[in-house]
Design a binder for these strands. Structure first.
Lengths: 215, 215, 215, 215
DNA sequence: AATGAATGAGTCTTCATTCAT
DNA sequence: TATGAATGAAGACTCATTCAT
């Protein structure tokens, strides 16, 4: 797990050159601990120790503990949504994914890769969203408005093509998203003993059958 | 919300006569606050004030803050699963639900009623499960072993009848559960502007089509 | 140890008929715990539990925790001194103990029996005396004035007889008492591996030689 | 009394440069209060106030209240024993103290000076030893094993020279130690009205006579 | 006489944050 | 930039004591 997380932080450090070495250590340590024990139950003292940094150093970079949390979660949220907000998505769509199933498959694969890279940060996000209105607002701002809009277009696209049922697009999205998230959660909880390829196929079969257009 | 929660606590107080009046006030207040701010961010001082009780009184009844949390969540978990562990479930099944769809519909309705009554406690449970291994263990103990077993029987029952697909029962259960939980979550988040009957129908249509047996 | 202690409490209960059954249980439990953990570190809650009594019951009989302590220690102190305050001590002395050595031997034996019976209470007394002026005052009142007076007479008696050195009686008493108490303390600390008869003989030899009159 | 204690702390502060100014204030205040009221009855709040320091500061330096106690008592115990563990003690012995009486006198003087400097800490040690197994263990470790061994050698040395009785060395040590400690305790309790020179002479006379070799 | 629920002041300890160096 | 000592408010929890039953 530590391995995967390194990637995220490495990206951060490579992309954002303004970050001090110590600052990076703080971000790594905080991510680790927030994921494990939760934001409220993690003390800045612990983070400092784990990061090999003086406690004061944390507050030199982040005015408050909460700012530290947001500085971890916010960029993830932006990145998470990036692929869906790219302007020429429609073009890509039309060309690349003749069938809804192909789109589904591509999206699942893409999200899976993202999750593997950002597992801890996503975990923090999900754990903390009930307690911080800032997170909820960010989520609504980004996902609720932008992503949902995109997805609606996409769903309508395939509905027009007659490939999927004519339910309201939001409902289609909800059913699809629930299924995929249920898959990720179960996989994450089960851990081993999990035949990935098989399960994905079954899930896609289920989705395609469930969403198929009434003849 | 307070309204619905009263039900749970009222049951508690009526069934469990060993509870002091003050103790009940503590349970109500703690439930309220844990749901709202989370366990770690709620202080026993706050709970005491909200309950109109001295702080010491809390600890006279619950040795630790965590014990208070568990005393709220544990009984809910037991109750939550009760309907699925009733001994003559199979009999009921055979007689009452000729078709899988009827079973689904009944279960959704039943769970929905349960949720409405215990919204806050369920919320606490979901929010806190990442941070307390006791909750995870209880969940595995009860759900993982008992409920999953029951559901497996049920799914196999309908598979044999040829009503649903021959995927592994656990997969069927996962797909179904994901869909239903996604429905509850969305409903809870959206709040208003929600056509319940319509959404349930669409969900069931989706599930039935998705799980239909390949003839 | 519990065994020996029972004796003390049994005496208490037999002599003092005004004591309730519960009250006796409280005294036994409190003695046990005060000896083990010290007065300040023992809670009335613990005492109540150990005594099998409600916490309120303690305060029905003893207005404060300190009163409970004193009600344990004070009677012991009175009893401890009793033998030395008996009016006809001199008579007894003259007749029974021709030599100082016999007096010493008798006293050591007598004190030893007392200690065995009241080990815990004496322990409490010694542990708590630095922290409670009441205990110091009681001790001065009883020992400082009464016992010291008696002993002075006794020492002078043997000095006149030419059996012991002519140092000031208080010094003789101090040297003798130090030696005897050192013996008890060491015995108590060592526990096993202790040849009682031998050690007492050596101690008496030491004392007799050390206190012998310069001819 | 405060005067004498300053010495100890002053040494601490001069030798141990790692101690903060505040930390020293904490040690002084804690020593004062522990001696006066006992460990269990002294609150960290009191200590902080007396030290002119925030309560949190105490716990920045000492993880627990008990650690504070030990950090006061442990170094004293080490220092207390130092003179007896010096490697060339035998050499010193042979050359400096031809007679056991001289050795006794030197030791009493030496211990007296030590006590005067460390009165409070020794008091704390004696008061708390019944309640903290750590103190008992430290004492056994240091005194029981190291010091007792040295003293045995010394006693045997004078026994071989025919200056003192042939009782088992441990018994000789016990008798001597009891006498000396009885002297210190009485002196401390009596306070004034105490002719030091006279009392020491009488004590040594007593000891020398009591321990003299049987011709 | 005995209970045990209730109290609120007090306990030790932790925390996020500040600030002089 | 980084430190780490210092803070004081707040945290969970304990305590001796009271009081209605």
């Amino acid at each position: 797990m530590t391995e995967q997380n390194k990637h995220l932080l490495e990206e951060m450090l490579q992309e954002d050159e303004s970050l001090t070495e110590k600052q990076k250590q703080i971000l790594v340590a905080a991510t680790e601990m927030f994921a494990e024990k939760g934001f409220a139950a993690t003390s800045t003292n612990e983070i400092a120790k784990k990061a090999g940094v003086a406690e004061g150093t944390i507050f030199r970079h982040y005015k408050t503990k909460k700012e530290l949390l947001l500085s971890i979660v916010t960029p993830m949220m932006v990145k998470m949504l990036a692929p869906f907000i790219i302007k020429d998505l429609n073009k890509v769509l039309d060309k690349e994914f003749e069938h809804f199933e192909d789109f589904l498959r591509a999206m699942i694969k893409n999200r899976q890769e993202f999750l593997e890279k950002n597992l801890k940060v996503v975990q923090i996000f999900l754990q903390e969203i009930p307690f911080h209105y800032e997170l909820r607002e960010q989520f609504i701002e980004h996902v609720g408005k932008k992503v949902l809009g995109r997805f609606t277009q996409i769903v309508e696209h395939y509905q027009i093509k007659g490939q999927i049922t004519n339910m309201p697009p939001t409902t289609v999205i909800r059913l699809t998203a629930s299924t995929i998230m249920g898959y990720f959660v179960t996989k994450h909880v089960i851990g081993a003993n999990w035949n990935d390829v098989e399960e994905i196929n079954q899930m896609i079969t289920f989705l395609m059958k469930g969403l198929t257009a009434e003849n």
